[in-house]
Design a protein around this nucleic acid. Sequence first.
DNA 1: ATTGTGGCCTGCCCGC
DNA 2: TGCGGGCAGGCCACAA
Length: 260
Amino acid sequence: MPEMLEVEAYRRLAHNVLGLAVVAVDAPDAWIVKGGTTPDDLVDAFLGQTFVADRRIGKLLLLDTATGPTLGLRFGMTGVLDVDGVDGIDRLEYGSSRRNPVWDRFGLRFEGGRAMRLRDARRLGGVEVDPDERRLGPDASTLTAAQLRILLAERKAPLKARLMDQSAVAGLGNLLTDELLWRASLDPARPAGSLSDPERRRLRTHLHQTLVELAERGGSHTGDLQDSRVRGGRCPRDGAELQRRTVGGRTTYSCPEHQR
DNA sequence: ATTGTGGCCTGCCCGC
DNA sequence: TGCGGGCAGGCCACAA
């Protein structure tokens, strides 16, 4: 599903529409329009505008106009960004690679005939005008050691839940977090505040390594743990049967042998 | 304030 | 072969 690595690919794709005037706004699905705005509001906000910058915070893609509003795009679990018929990613875990026109939930057409659209089978994504960026923590790819220490300190919530709390650190979803904690040999259910200094350093090291490595491989579903994230799956490191449980409200796979 | 839970969306897979 | 139940997870509202 689109976690920060996929949305980063979408951002690079969206870069292609910078500098082009919007000649049409297609918003056929009011459900996908969030933040108290309507499809008509989207037309008013972006028709005739030109995007001048592409940004990403966690799983939120932001396209800024020069003096007007900012477009915010969220992709939920099955959202794909398509520019001129090209998808931002090759394959979406848990998503369909089919292209049903009904799944086109939002689109912009630009001068010169170019087009950008949000395709989302399950309608878990969203489009917003001027999303509140303050509700997001620092992006996981730029998280400093000091920021990590502060966001974990004193917390009783499970480590995994805290890492997936987008207001604490933005960008980590279920697959990346399971992979990260498996690599860092940390139990997802540990209270976030219980990590020792060495454990926290280990977490941060693996965070950056995991993001770089999985980005190179092609996405959040390319982790070493991924193929074993099934009932009865075994730890690729030591062969122990993985534990399957709910942590932080999400299905969680972890190794009872080496994640402590 | 912090943490936990349930519901929403709907395509797809599995078992009968 | 068709059908239905369960499952996937990001996000939000709401409860404790």
